[in-house]
Write a protein that binds this DNA or RNA. Structure first.
Lengths: 198, 198, 198, 198
DNA sequence: AATGAATGAGAGTTCATTCAT
DNA sequence: TATGAATGAACTCTCATTCAT
């Protein structure tokens, strides 16, 4: 990189690098804080964890939904991209669906403020909600459709409803050791299976 | 006059009647507000809706949990009492379980701040949580056990987990018309059914 | 009004007796509560201790100062009346003054919210203040004057100032065992003594 | 006169001032308010007087004790530092003690909410209390000890008691012009003097 | 006359958001 | 651009005082 005007360009570059670094720090910090304090955690707390000022958060993420969305974007992407691969590689469409739901649940219970955020009716999270569904609903639809087409499961279940249901089942997962969302989700899948021919 | 009891007592009784009326107003108002603003709604809002001062709420319900518990106590009781009757009257234990879950869901989606409150990890709702479980878990256990004993459903599902799951599925029921918790719960029940002998 | 209806009279009498009894209960209760919670104790607390309603307190003692004054009136009277007797019976006017101050201090430290109330600039206690001074200042003045006249103590000290000073020294008496107002008051008295003729 | 502009809209509500300047404003305001309303004055009142928001007070002084301590710290320091100098410069230890007490009283009556705060049994002021004593008791002890050693005053008086006594005498100084704590303190000092040999 | 339920002003405290530096 | 000080609305809770019974 050549810099004829060292001060001007260098400072611009420096700032850019700073900004990127800040954004990364913020995302990591927010992810951590969301886990311990939920997605409604005080901005201060996130800023402190990231080692930046509060204003910096507002610059990068004007609304809370922007931040939450950004925090989970990578995982949402990964989850979305896994759909087709699983469908291609699994023994059966149902097996692919099961594996995808496993990923989905991993994601939700790992970042455990998320399930709460997703069901929150607060308009604050509308953007997250939208992004989440726009990206994942088609993937879920594809898997679900394939399983139906293969005759593995009965038709009639909508991807939106299934995703909401799984998401809801993941809420408050760790408040009591007696509650394990995966067991219930397994029951759901059992319920989806085509009743055997008489 | 035959009033052996001093008038002091009579007047005390009268005041009580007022207080009772106020309590009712409060319970109705709180139930309404919980629906629109959640169980964390500001005390002022509830007081305003009930047409009473804030202090009146504190008098009747010293803590928020007291209020929430009181709001839902009647329904919890009704639900608890329905269990044995349904078991006695239904065609099969599974049918009884299904009907009881219907009642349970009716309850949760009608007073829909409740599902939120129940899963809230906030210690503020510990009392409600405890009351809820103490009262309903045994009922659910009985129905579940009977269905297992009759061979209608597979064993291994705990009443606590089932209730939590159903409760979670009822969260945010009306944020989107595409989501109907009952359909998912029906799937859960399907999943619980004993796989037919080979 | 003619007392045609006996019940009218009877009830009036009954109420009077009740009122007197209530007043006594209130004074005792207030005295106790003042000791533990200060003269600013919540009205509720006093009412509860006395076993009466709050309204009853307001009926008997419209302002807090009225109650405080009433609570301490007996002791103020006793203290006031002791002055002349002590002067008549003691070995010297200084000794009488010392004994009277002892009584005064007993009074203040026994009812330990009192010293605080007396110095409180809050107008709430103006009535108490006034009553207190009206009654005791002349007594103190008499004792002080006699001691001065006898040549026991130097002239120049005003009874108001001496009483305020002693009252202040009694404040917070029991917050620390290292603090004993009597030792300081004894020093004050030493300081009042006529310096020995050269 | 330039007041033609519609100054009704206070756009120049100097929102952001230097933090240090704000602290100073806060300390001055608090000192003033403590004088008129006592050290228990509402936070809002102090904030209003300082022209800042309430949050600013919490930022600078998280607890009330922090604020009270800060308000009086400078004077406490000055008083503490004066002790040794006075002892070195005065004609006699007793004279040094007298001068130090003069300073001490100046301090208390100038910032006269302080005497109240010091005797307050509320645990809220424990920090102030502790700081006050930690800093001044040793100074008072030194002066007192020197005066005893020099034979100027009788032994047996503890610095804690003397300071509490003087502090108490300064309470409510200006509620009545007839009351002057200095006259009583002078009597105390007189009382401390060694009784002349028989 | 007595009661105590009801009222609501007022105090403490938190935190999202703005904006001077 | 980044910072974090400042603001103030919003919330909880307490208690003096009133007033219907």
């Amino acid at each position: 990189m050549s810099a004829e005007s060292p001060s001007g360009k260098a400072s611009a570059r420096t700032k850019r690098a700073d900004a990127v670094r800040n954004q990364q720090a913020l995302l990591s910090a927010a992810a951590e804080v969301f886990v311990t304090s939920g997605v409604d955690a005080p901005i201060r707390q996130i800023a402190a964890k990231a080692g930046v000022g509060m204003g910096t958060i507002y610059r990068h993420f004007p609304t809370r939904a922007d931040l939450v969305t950004a925090v989970y974007r990578h995982q949402i992407e990964a989850c979305a991209e896994a759909g087709p691969s699983l469908l291609a590689g699994a023994d059966s469409p149902l097996e692919a669906l099961r594996q995808w739901i496993d990923l989905f649940v991993d994601f939700l219970v790992t970042k455990h403020g998320l399930a709460d955020a997703l069901q929150s009716d607060s308009s604050r999270f509308a953007a997250l909600h939208t992004y989440f569904l726009d990206r994942l609903e088609p993937v879920c639809a594809q898997l679900l459709g394939a399983a139906v087409d293969a005759g593995d499961i009965r038709p009639g279940t909508q991807p939106y409803e299934l995703m909401r249901g799984i998401g809801n089942l993941c809420i408050g997962r760790d408040s009591d050791p007696r509650y394990d969302p995966r067991r219930l989700i397994e029951l759901l899948l059992q319920g989806l299976r085509q009743p055997p021919p008489a």
